[in-house]
Amino acid sequence: MRIVVSNKAGQPIYQQIEDQIKTAILSGDLAAGTLLPSIRQLARDLQISVITTTRAYHDLEEQGFVTNVQGKGSYVLGQDSALVREHALRDIEQYLGQALDAAALAKIPPAELHTMLDTLIAAEGGTDVHE
């Protein structure tokens, strides 16, 4: 598993770690039962604080993505499809909320937001949102 963090990403490093591990789990790159690098090893590899990696692993455990086995390490948990969907919906709601806040500040009307979303979906090869 390869994790890349950046101080310039505009996102806390622990969040970057969480997001990359979640993505790997949800995409199937990290299968259930896979042992993650130890907190200390990951901190050493990324040249960051152990506190930062501890926060990322703790948050992943709270969200049900990993489990910590005392003295053995952190292991990937199997993902229930309903749980995966719920996490995705929560993330999407958060990002859409941020987009709505930015649109309100810029006084962009809802019709233009709909057009932007339709355009983004079409560009990604998705289907029309009105289907």
Rank of each mutant, 00 (worst) to 15 (best):
R85N: 05
R90V: 08
T23E: 13
V66Y: 04
Q41F: 10
E18D: 06
T23F: 10
R44C: 02
Q98E: 15
R44W: 10
H58E: 15
S74W: 00
L100K: 11
I48A: 01
Y57L: 07
L60I: 03
Q98N: 11
Q20R: 02
D29L: 11
L100A: 14
L35E: 12
R90E: 14
K72M: 14
D29R: 13
Q98D: 14
I21A: 05
S38H: 09
L96P: 02
A88H: 09
L83G: 08
L30A: 09
L46V: 07
L100H: 07
R40F: 06
I17G: 01
T52I: 15
V69C: 04
Q16W: 04
L96H: 05
H87N: 10
I48N: 00
E86D: 15
I13R: 09
A31L: 12
T54V: 06
L30G: 02
L46E: 04
Q47V: 11
E86Q: 13
T53H: 05
R44M: 09
Y75T: 07
Q98Y: 11
T34H: 10
Q16Y: 05
Q20E: 11
Q41R: 15
R85T: 07
R85Q: 11
I92R: 03
D45T: 11
A24D: 14
Q70N: 10
E62A: 13
I92G: 02
T53F: 06
G33A: 09
Q20M: 07
L42T: 05
R44D: 15
L26C: 07
Q15V: 15
T34V: 12
T52E: 12
D91W: 10
Y57G: 04
G73Y: 08
T52W: 02
E93N: 14
Q94T: 14
R40N: 11
T52H: 02
D101L: 14
T67I: 13
H58K: 15
G73L: 09
Q63M: 13
K72Y: 14
S27K: 08
Q47W: 01
N68W: 04
E86Y: 02
G64T: 06
D45K: 08
T34K: 10
Q15L: 13
V50F: 06
S74R: 13
L42E: 07
T34R: 11
L100M: 14
Q79I: 07
D45M: 08
L77V: 01
A31I: 03
E93C: 05
G73S: 10
Q79G: 02
G71W: 10
Q63K: 15
L42N: 05
Y75S: 07
R55T: 15
L100C: 11
Q47P: 00
G97H: 07
R40L: 09
Y57V: 09
G64Y: 00
D19G: 10
I13H: 04
Y75P: 04
Q15P: 01
Q70C: 00
L100F: 14
G33E: 03
I51D: 12
A31F: 03
P37D: 12
I92S: 03
T67Q: 12
A88M: 13
Q98W: 10
S81D: 08
N68E: 09
L30V: 08
S38P: 03
A32M: 02
L46H: 04
Q79H: 02
N68D: 03
D101T: 15
T23Y: 08
V66A: 06
I39T: 15
V69L: 12
Q47K: 13
A56N: 04
Y95N: 12
V69P: 00
G71C: 10
I13A: 05
P37Q: 10
L89T: 03
